[in-house]
Computed example of a mutant assay.
Amino acid sequence: MSVFIDIAGLATADIVFELSPLAELSLALHTLSEPGHHPGLAGWATATAASLQPDLAGRLCEADFLWRNTFSDLFMPFAGVRGGDGRTRATLAEELDLLDLLDDEQFVSTALEFCSLDSYNTGGTSPLSDPAARARALELATARGPQQLEFTARLLKDPDSVRVWVRRLVEDCDAAFFADTWRRVQGKLAADARHKTQLLRRKGLGHALTAVSPALALEDGGTRIRADKLSEGQATATDPDVGAGLTFVPSHFGWPHLMILHRPGWRPVVHYPVGGPELPAPASVELLKLRLEALAHPVRMQLCRNTARAPHTTGELAVILGISAPEVSRHLAVLKKAGLIVTRRRGRYVMYQLDITVVARLSSDFLEGILR
Rank of each mutant, 00 (worst) to 15 (best):
R291M: 11
L101I: 09
R201Y: 07
F178L: 12
A141E: 00
G222N: 05
E171L: 15
V185S: 05
R361Y: 09
E316Y: 08
L149M: 14
R168C: 15
A211W: 01
H38T: 06
G206V: 00
K289S: 14
R87Q: 10
T197F: 03
E24Y: 00
L246P: 02
I370N: 01
R136V: 09
V242T: 07
G145N: 00
N121F: 05
D64S: 10
H37V: 05
V334P: 11
D220Y: 06
P77V: 00
R134P: 14
R144S: 12
R87H: 14
H271G: 04
G80L: 12
L292R: 13
G123H: 00
E368Y: 09
E171D: 08
I7H: 00
W266D: 11
D220G: 08
P39R: 02
S251C: 12
L279H: 11
D64C: 15
A296Y: 13
R82G: 14
P264D: 10
T343L: 11
G84C: 15
R68F: 07
G206E: 14
V249R: 00
L66F: 03
L290T: 08
I7K: 01
R226K: 13
A281I: 07
L321C: 02
P146N: 04
L216F: 08
L32G: 05
T88H: 03
V16A: 09
L189A: 01
A8V: 11
G9L: 13
H37N: 03
F151A: 12
I260P: 01
S126K: 01
D130S: 11
A133G: 07
R361G: 15
A47F: 00
R372T: 10
V342K: 15
L292T: 14
V285R: 15
G84W: 07
F107G: 04
